[in-house]
Computed example of a mutant assay.
Amino acid sequence: MIKTLVTTSVFSALISLASAAYADEQIDYGKKIVETNCSGCHAIGTDDKSTHKDAPPFRTLSKRYPIDALAEAFAEGIYAGHPDMPEFEASPEQIDAILAYMSSIQQK
């Protein structure tokens, strides 16, 4: 009984560590994607400024939309945001990473 409890506790701890590491990898991957595709106009960090007047800072997007609701827009391809925003269509893996990153920087 005690051996089972210890084994279960160790297994749970390992799963938690693996989940945290995966979440960190997702956030890092998402940051790289938005640095490459979005940072020319949008503020993508926690305290930078958007260089395009019509491009909202990513850290404030949750004030406009539920972050998870953006998944569909990324899957279908974002064709309109600000007037000169380039077309961008993301894979499901990229979408998960972008949303993980965006969620990690939202202002409370």
Rank of each mutant, 00 (worst) to 15 (best):
M1I: 12
M1H: 14
M1P: 11
I2W: 11
I2M: 11
K3E: 12
T7M: 14
T7L: 14
T7H: 12
T7C: 11
S9L: 14
S9K: 13
S9P: 02
V10C: 05
F11S: 13
F11W: 07
F11D: 09
F11C: 13
F11E: 15
A13D: 14
L14A: 09
L14D: 06
L14R: 08
I15V: 15
I15M: 10
S16M: 13
L17K: 12
A18M: 10
Y22L: 15
Y22E: 14
A23F: 03
A23G: 08
D24T: 09
D24A: 13
Q26C: 07
I27Q: 04
I27D: 06
I27S: 05
D28H: 12
Y29S: 11
G30W: 00
G30S: 08
G30P: 02
K31P: 01
K32F: 08
V34S: 02
V34N: 01
E35D: 10
T36M: 15
T36D: 15
T36Q: 13
T36K: 15
T36R: 15
N37W: 03
N37A: 14
C38A: 04
C38Y: 01
S39P: 06
S39I: 07
S39G: 09
S39T: 12
G40Y: 03
C41F: 01
H42W: 06
H42I: 02
A43T: 00
I44H: 00
G45N: 07
G45C: 07
T46H: 10
D47F: 06
D47V: 11
D48P: 05
S50F: 00
H52A: 10
H52K: 09
H52D: 03
D54P: 08
A55W: 00
P56D: 06
R59A: 02
R59K: 11
T60I: 12
T60M: 05
T60R: 03
K63V: 05
P66A: 09
I67V: 05
I67T: 01
I67Q: 00
D68G: 04
D68N: 09
D68I: 05
A69S: 13
A69T: 07
A69L: 07
L70N: 00
L70V: 04
A71E: 07
A73V: 09
A73C: 13
A73G: 13
F74W: 14
A75R: 04
G77H: 07
G77F: 06
I78P: 01
Y79L: 14
Y79K: 15
Y79H: 14
Y79R: 15
A80W: 12
A80D: 10
G81K: 06
G81Q: 03
H82T: 12
P83N: 10
P83E: 02
P83G: 07
D84P: 09
D84S: 15
P86D: 04
E87A: 15
F88N: 07
F88G: 04
F88T: 07
E89I: 12
E89G: 11
E89A: 14
A90V: 06
S91F: 04
S91C: 04
P92Q: 06
P92H: 05
P92D: 08
P92W: 10
E93K: 13
Q94T: 04
I95L: 07
I95D: 01
D96I: 03
D96M: 06
L99G: 00
S103G: 11
S103C: 09
S103A: 09
S104D: 04
S104T: 03
Q106P: 06
Q107R: 07
Q107L: 11
K108T: 08
K108D: 14
